[in-house]
Design a binder for these strands. Sequence first.
DNA 1: ACCTGAACACCGTTCAAGT
DNA 2: ACCTGAACACCGTTCAAGT
Lengths: 225, 225
Amino acid sequence: MPPRPPSATTHGAPEVPRAQYHHGDLRHALLTATVEILAEVGAEAFTLREAARRAGVNHRAIYRHFEDKRALLAAVAEEGYLALAAETRAALAAIEIPPGAPAALRIERLVALAEAYLRFARREPARYQVMFGPRLNADARFPSLEEAIAASVAVLAGELRALAPAATSRARRDAGVALWSAIHGLSALVLAGRVPLADRHVRSYVAALLTPIVEGIARRLVPAE
Amino acid sequence: MPPRPPSATTHGAPEVPRAQYHHGDLRHALLTATVEILAEVGAEAFTLREAARRAGVNHRAIYRHFEDKRALLAAVAEEGYLALAAETRAALAAIEIPPGAPAALRIERLVALAEAYLRFARREPARYQVMFGPRLNADARFPSLEEAIAASVAVLAGELRALAPAATSRARRDAGVALWSAIHGLSALVLAGRVPLADRHVRSYVAALLTPIVEGIARRLVPAE
DNA sequence: ACCTGAACACCGTTCAAGT
DNA sequence: ACCTGAACACCGTTCAAGT
């Protein structure tokens, strides 16, 4: 994308209240460029300067919007967690099994959630790597990143609450960690290439692998049934 | 560590057949330095030049032993998989439950394997990150790395074979992937700081989280019992 | 055989301006 | 307010020597 001539924004009346050298939203453009680059070359090879090049600005311009490289990647991870939360929520909403169904049926909802999770990871492997790879938030910078993580965890936690309303919160928390472990672990192994998996087999594979796990967990959580 | 004076190796009779500028085994020294640096600053911040500095050589000397940075990291990952295989194997060997025990008892062996796995990941988080983070072997360089991975997978596969000798290899492979997913996923979440876990609680936590999962998988694998 | 020195193209980040 | 230019210290890697 060639740089605009500077006269382009100044001819005629000044309709834009705040002068903008760049195209409206550099922050957004940088995030888009970053996700693009991550998808092409992976998280290790990503550079700030390349992101600036794609956005059509000097590399120094980035620091106007992000404190440093980590802050940019944290913003990408944050968007990722919000997208993951939205997609798993949508997958649950699209399911025919009602909230009041018996446990045996509700297990299907957990498998559907896992399938949506794995599909997200496969669709955006580099972003997923940024979300789970480096400890971006080790020193508790980026509280909004923490909130986005909590939002994606909440989808699973909500489903477990509906499945086992009588269980202790401790038992539900353990079940949540166990399920998240299994789902994240499977996603990571698939992304690392350790488990070959064609796109049209995702549904059946997730069902075959996770159903025993979900049943094992649910059996502890809902002993009455 | 200051550089040795060159006369130190040449005084008296030439007892060492092959002349060595450096201390015997630069390759080994570089691997040790790399693991040290990884533990200190993490995988992203690791640099070849720092590894050379710690080994006391010019950074160009590395290329005598490793083709490039990826090759050095692949060697570190390879050592890691071999160590992981050895430690999980040792954990199984130290268990009182004999190989011929019924399935219900043999499940304990799988939990012990998982505990050893998680302990390894916690003891060497940066190395574990290198083992599972970047796709070092995406283009099938480093066949010996692939062998080391296979060796660590074989420990779990062997245990599943003993647990369910009559199951189809397909069923056992699926069970292996499911278990590995759960164990790796839990390790990754713990390392990422998403699941706080004190060292003295590792055993009970692994047991609480993975026993339902292992039982769920085993129930499918050994339906008779 | 094994290691070094100088050089290249690149990186993230800081400082001091420009409009 | 927002962006740029020049500079700094550093990186992985190549080339051409040194012993």
